[in-house]
């Protein structure tokens, strides 16, 4: 078994990648890079600080670093995070939820090569219909926490991804030529529950900022609850 750290933004793809990694290898920790730049090239930003709650829900330690989110500096900060994870938890490899982003994947691959770490991307060029369906079937609770393109209106913010939402996203994807998974950053998500969580996350207080097809659902207070 390879000991792995999962690069985690809190969204559906990294949490699902963690789940797949656990089924085949040993996940030793989650790793998050908290960017102060909302336009981060590598790390999506809404609610990333709440990855700590996901780690607690999963019973996993978290290695978290802050970054100013400048294009190349944030890669150095990622390298620092991976080094810390290796020192503390002995990781031998890294897992990401990259689906189609050559920018993200190739930079992570490069860092892993430089650090002599394994690099796994179990969602790489996955069948997106099948993947979105499996999120629902396998018991993930995912909400939309950011929208950044037409035609997403405010009603999408905080909405849970269920079969009906996937059908609507499918129609939008076809009409607006975006991917079903929001791989181009058209929307962002947060995982409240996953099959490997011991407890689920419950949002107690939230706020919404929305204007002209761009908006975020900020989780202001959340706690863990027994299922």
């Amino acid at each position: 078994m390879v000991k792995l750290g999962v690069l985690c933004s809190g969204g559906k793809d990294s949490i699902f990648a963690a789940y797949r990694a656990m089924q085949k290898e040993e996940v030793s920790c989650l790793i998050s890079v908290v960017s102060r730049n909302e336009e981060s090239y590598m790390f999506h930003t809404p609610n990333v600080p709440l990855v700590a709650l996901q780690a607690e829900a999963a019973g996993l330690p978290l290695v978290s670093v802050d970054t100013a989110g400048e294009k190349e500096k944030e890669l150095e900060d990622l390298r620092d995070a991976l080094e810390r994870a290796r020192e503390r938890y002995g990781i031998e490899g890294v897992v990401s939820g990259a689906i189609m982003s050559v920018y993200q994947a190739s930079r992570l691959q490069q860092i892993c090569r430089d650090m002599d770490l394994w690099c796994f991307n179990p969602l790489w060029y996955t069948d997106q219909d099948e993947y979105m369906g499996s999120l629902v079937r396998e018991g993930f609770s995912i909400i939309i926490t950011g929208v950044f393109s037409e035609p997403f209106d405010e009603s999408w913010l905080g909405r849970r991804i269920d079969d009906r939402a996937i059908a609507e996203l499918g129609a939008i994807a076809e009409r607006y030529r975006i991917t079903l998974t929001g791989e181009g950053g058209e929307f962002e998500t947060f995982a409240l529950d996953a099959p490997f969580f011991e407890r689920r996350i419950v949002v107690r207080k939230s706020s919404v900022r929305y204007r002209n097809f761009r908006g975020v659902y900020m989780i202001e207070e959340a706690e863990l609850e027994e299922r």
């Binding site: 390879v2 797949r20 085949k24 290898e25 897992v95 796994f120 179990p122 996955t126 069948d127």
Partner: peptide, 15 residues
């Protein structure tokens, strides 16, 4: 067999 790399390297080609 059945490694974590299976999804990344074989599945996309099979697709």
């Amino acid at each position: 067999p059945g490694s974590l790399a299976l999804e990344e390297f074989a599945y996309p080609i099979a697709a």
